[in-house]
Design a protein around this nucleic acid. Structure first.
Length: 125
DNA sequence: CTTCTGACGAAAT
DNA sequence: CATTTCGCCAGAA
């Protein structure tokens, strides 16, 4: 069977980003071995309308909303959740950066809690 | 097989 | 800051 990249794990992790916070494609990828930011974007691009996955909470590493047809809808949703933006239109990371996955996710995926904390700490550098 | 294309990102300019 | 350049890599053509 072709070793195709699985979207499921990406969706599960994106679902961990709570309302009012935002994460970058790279942040999501950093927690999934073998997955790159580009792959995260690819996975989200395959989502169908009406999905429950909070795709709108994922933006570029700069905080900018990736330019695409529904960028306006994404900004609208983030604003309605209370996410603050900088004058240049990018998400203000100092105020709304994702704090990291829940203990539930760590356990369910059998990940080392300390390692996960290290990765999350890297985001703030 | 080769080429092109991204819901990317870091570094250079 | 904003833009460009280059590396990246799974799919599609």
């Amino acid at each position: 069977m072709t070793a195709r990249f699985e979207f499921g794990p990406v969706y599960d992790l994106v679902a961990e980003v709570p309302k009012g916070e935002a994460a970058s494609y790279g942040m999501i990828a950093s927690l999934l071995p073998g997955v790159t930011a580009r792959m995260v974007g690819r996975a989200l691009s395959h989502l169908k309308g009406g999905t429950q996955t909070p795709w709108h909470r994922i933006v570029q590493s700069s905080g900018a909303i990736a330019p695409r047809p529904f960028a306006g809808e994404q900004r609208k949703r983030l604003k309605s959740e209370g996410v603050a933006f900088r004058s240049n239109g990018a998400v203000d990371w100092s105020r709304n950066a994702w704090r990291g996955p829940s203990p539930r996710w760590v356990k369910k995926n059998r990940r080392d809690a300390a390692r996960v904390m290290e990765i999350v700490a890297e985001w703030r550098r």
